[in-house]
Amino acid sequence: MLADKYADRIEEIFAKYPDKRSGIMDLLYLAQEEYGWLSEDALREVAALCDVDPTQAQSIAGFYTMFSEKPKGKYWLQVCTDLPCALRGADQFYRELCEYLGVEDGGTTGDGLFTVEQVMCLAACDRAPMLQCNFHYYENLDMETIKALIEQWRARALEEVPEPGE
């Protein structure tokens, strides 16, 4: 439960606002960080913390694209493919990225590590192709760089996976 695990952070969040209701966005981020995505249970948990109806939490999660109501990979790769980025080859980059990971547009890899999707402008047109991975920017990418990064992330993720039988 968020309330137990992040009691201090939640208190900090509420301290910023005049009423609990206003802290809902911060708490949704917190929940998404914790669970990887916003399940209905997570929405209910946040709503209860903010003292609003769960429907309100769902509505907010639905409106903002940075909240996800579907399970995501551990690494959530959002590639901007808007026109200026596309002019710098972002669309081609995105296709190749999907191919490399072996997923469809918007899909998640079989091991549950990577989700890729196209998004609208991330305000880094001059450094395209670019993507954000779990809200951190990676810019001026080509396939070589991204492949290296992906393998790095994969290795890191695998280290954390417990050995069978443990």
Partner: peptide, 25 residues
């Protein structure tokens, strides 16, 4: 004053939702 209905998503896909307990409470 029962905030049990809300919009979900946006644009053309804007939809009415409720997950209150019981629904539409």
């Amino acid at each position: 004053g029962d905030d049990v209905l809300a919009f979900h998503e946006r644009g053309r896909r804007l939809q009415i939702v409720t997950i209150s307990d019981p629904p539409f409470d």
